[in-house]
Design a protein around this nucleic acid. Sequence first.
DNA 1: TATCATAGCGTTCAATTGAACGCATTTTGC
DNA 2: GCAAAATGCGTTCAATTGAACGCTATGATA
Lengths: 127, 127
Amino acid sequence: MSKRPALARSELEVARIVWRLGRASVRQVLEALPSERNLDFKTVQTYLRRLEAKGYLRTKREGRAKIYLSRVRPAQVVREVIDDLLQRLFGGESIPLFQHLIHDRGLTASEIDRLRGMLDEWEDPKS
Amino acid sequence: MSKRPALARSELEVARIVWRLGRASVRQVLEALPSERNLDFKTVQTYLRRLEAKGYLRTKREGRAKIYLSRVRPAQVVREVIDDLLQRLFGGESIPLFQHLIHDRGLTASEIDRLRGMLDEWEDPKS
DNA sequence: TATCATAGCGTTCAATTGAACGCATTTTGC
DNA sequence: GCAAAATGCGTTCAATTGAACGCTATGATA
């Protein structure tokens, strides 16, 4: 139950990259960031350090470099983040979020198809 | 273009109430907050003041009390907030968010129906 | 009309966040 | 084998955020 401290915006951004890469050094994360982001090496390093301190990541030394890995399942974190948002934005209801995503943002035809597929499958899990 | 400063978590929570009520005094917002939240009158006042300073709300004096109203369309703000989250969490893609909402959170049968309805209607807006 | 509660206004204060240094220690390319 | 580049580690620093005071004005009530 003991919740780890909430993720700050920038931390989330950086954590996501580690999740995607599975394991990453500071430099690798830096390079995986969108180039417009233009963060300093030291800054990324700081965020990673904080993520470790907060319990989201763990590290493993590999020669000179320190490799960051996820400590909690990403899906779990995603869930917490979205729960929090849902709570503050829509009082916890997810339907209004769907509503918003569909209405105010729009979907391509193929996205609609995929979405229908998801619903079908969820309702009747395929063999 | 000139973006107003991002909403802090607590500010969002408070703004949402003003949106819901349409117009509200400090006390009304305080009372509309979930009771577990247990914020001080002064604290709510501070958040409202900040929301005004950031350009999200405007006020209108009504006798003794100051009434807070929305200055930007709530849907617009919701959009910004979600854009931001989507960006940091899924690189801007909305499908993974749907995926998460459906898979990791689950929906009731009736929610699934409503969702299907939304998709149908979006694709073929009813007369 | 005196009084009391309510609201405003300005401030404060610690914690967190966004961003980046500097120095020491590796590595590695030459 | 040595200079240049890369890393780690500890720090810093201003802005923002979460939370709440204290003092003043004002309006409603007894």
